[in-house]
């Protein structure tokens, strides 16, 4: 089980951030997530695997300076 935006979510082996986002509704503005406290950006979504018990926050928008 993992936590996504404070909600429990089923974890699967080899699951990537891209896999996770495919299952989430309306994530069109999500280009960055925080995975266990570390920032991961969209170019790395497909290669980044999610460990079991991970805590994930989807960052809503990147607003710049």
């Amino acid at each position: 089980m993992i936590q996504v935006n404070d909600q429990p979510f089923e974890w699967k082996p080899d699951m990537t951030i891209a896999d996770l986002l495919k299952q989430m509704p309306d994530v069109r503005f999500c280009s960055v997530v925080r995975l266990n406290g570390k920032l991961v950006s969209s170019p790395r979504f497909r290669e980044t695997r999610i460990p079991d018990n991970a805590v994930i926050h989807l960052l809503p928008l990147v607003a710049g300076g």
Binding site: S41, S42, P43, R44, H57, L59
Partner: peptide, 22 residues
């Protein structure tokens, strides 16, 4: 605390984000 954590890191969160997006 759930988003950019600016109270902890200011705007330095943008460094890895901008780097990853070229």
């Amino acid at each position: 605390p759930k988003q950019n954590r600016m109270a902890l890191v200011g705007t330095t969160h943008l460094v890895p984000i901008m780097n990853d997006h070229d």
